[in-house]
């Protein structure tokens, strides 16, 4: 079945040329939980041609409060496989590769082959720093985001920036271990990540390079900080 007019409402935000660039792009989404699920959903809807999803977990009941791919019917199923099915039904023109397992640094050249950009949707600070290191080694742009409770942070790290190691290299376990993550925070931070991702893919200048956005949904404050 043809779905002509699928991208009609992307105009004039995205030109035909932009849409073509997206269709020819491949994005890896590392982590398919709160952030990753929404990121995958939006990248499929906006028309990114190929998505590679990584996650080594199955859905649990405690995911239902925030993870867009989780339903009462798929508890116990692999997150990436559920996401694959859903994305196919959202946009059959998108090629999805679902990798059931955690991202392994040693296998990065093979895992990220033909990828144009990486979205960090991980849930630990150490793994984020590792992912940035891998992206820099492979000369890939990285859009990173993290969440805890009402709060989040996001930015863009291009090869050589080391923004993630600056932001996430210190401190103990994230405060999400106490504050959890409600439905709205991953949705907001994922959307912001996707906006930066789309800009990079179509060749626009990202807004959050050498900077990060501090998001506070309790005070409804979005504050930008420079990474100097």
């Amino acid at each position: 079945m043809k779905f002509e007019g699928r991208y009609l409402r992307n105009k004039k935000t995205l030109s035909d040329e932009d849409q073509l660039k997206l269709a020819n792009s491949c994005v890896a989404i590392v982590g398919c939980g709160g952030l990753g699920g929404y990121i995958a959903e939006q990248l499929a809807r906006v028309g990114v041609g190929r998505l590679v999803l990584f996650d080594g977990d199955r859905f649990e009941v405690s995911n239902l409060n925030r993870q867009i791919m989780a339903t009462e019917l798929n508890i116990g199923q692999w997150k990436v496989e559920v996401a694959h099915q859903r994305l196919k039904s959202v946009n059959s023109e998108v090629q999805v590769e679902a990798i059931r397992g955690w991202f392994e640094e040693d296998r990065a050249p093979e895992l990220l082959k033909n990828v144009d950009l990486v979205c960090d949707a991980l849930d630990s600070r150490d793994s984020r720093v590792m992912l940035e290191r891998v992206c820099h080694q492979m000369n890939l742009p990285l859009v990173y985001a993290s969440i805890a409770g009402w709060f989040g942070q996001l930015g863009v790290s291009l090869p050589g920036d080391f923004s993630v190691s600056r932001l996430y290299g210190h401190g103990e376990r994230g405060v999400e271990s106490m504050w959890g993550n409600p439905a709205f925070t991953p949705a907001v931070l994922a959307s912001l990540s996707v906006a930066e991702t789309v800009k990079l893919l179509v060749g626009r200048v990202p807004s959050l390079r050498h900077a990060w956005l501090q998001v506070d949904l309790l005070a409804m404050e979005f504050e930008r900080f420079e990474i100097q």
Binding site: G34, G36, D123, A148, H170, G171, V175, Q214
Partner: peptide, 9 residues
Amino acid sequence: ALFPPVGGG
């Protein structure tokens, strides 16, 4: 300016 670690996903 002081920030706590935010690491969830």
